[in-house]
């Protein structure tokens, strides 16, 4: 078993990077890896409620983020600095995630065996 940290740094709509990163995170968890997830930069917008990706021809994969805890992915951190940049508050998050300082995220990155960025 390895500690795998999956960092999302791209916006939810407009590219498919996060969708394929999410597939990787869930598959890693189902293969018994210890998976943690970080949202930083524009990827903090994943946490926004009421998104309708299908209106612009994307699959609504965002709903799947709500299933992270079912896959035993319990560490889900949102970069506080990025959230502030995009005017996002913790009370608005549409799935279970925790606002985290740069230091907390640094620590998670250092402790992981592998860190992949999507």
């Amino acid at each position: 078993m390895k500690k795998v940290c999956v960092i999302f740094r791209h916006s939810p709509i407009g590219n498919t990077s996060s969708r394929e990163g999410l597939d990787f995170a869930m598959l890693s968890a189902s293969f018994e890896q210890e998976v943690s997830v970080v949202f930083t930069d524009e990827a903090v917008l994943h946490l926004l409620p009421e998104q309708q990706p299908e209106l612009v021809g994307s699959k609504d994969y965002l709903a799947t983020f709500k299933a992270l805890s079912l896959y035993d992915i319990d560490t889900v951190l949102v970069c506080q600095e990025s959230a502030k940049q995009f005017g996002l508050k913790e009370s608005e998050f549409n799935f279970e995630a925790e606002m985290a300082s740069v230091k907390q995220i640094q620590l998670l990155i250092q402790q992981a065996n592998e860190v992949v960025v999507y």
């Binding site: 078993m1 390895k2 795998v4 597939d23 990787f24 598959l27 890693s28 293969f31 890896q33 592998e114």
Partner: peptide
């Protein structure tokens, strides 16, 4: 192959 091969490969 599947993503599983990536995950086991990483492991």
């Amino acid at each position: 192959g599947g993503l599983g091969e990536l995950v086991t490969g990483i492991e």
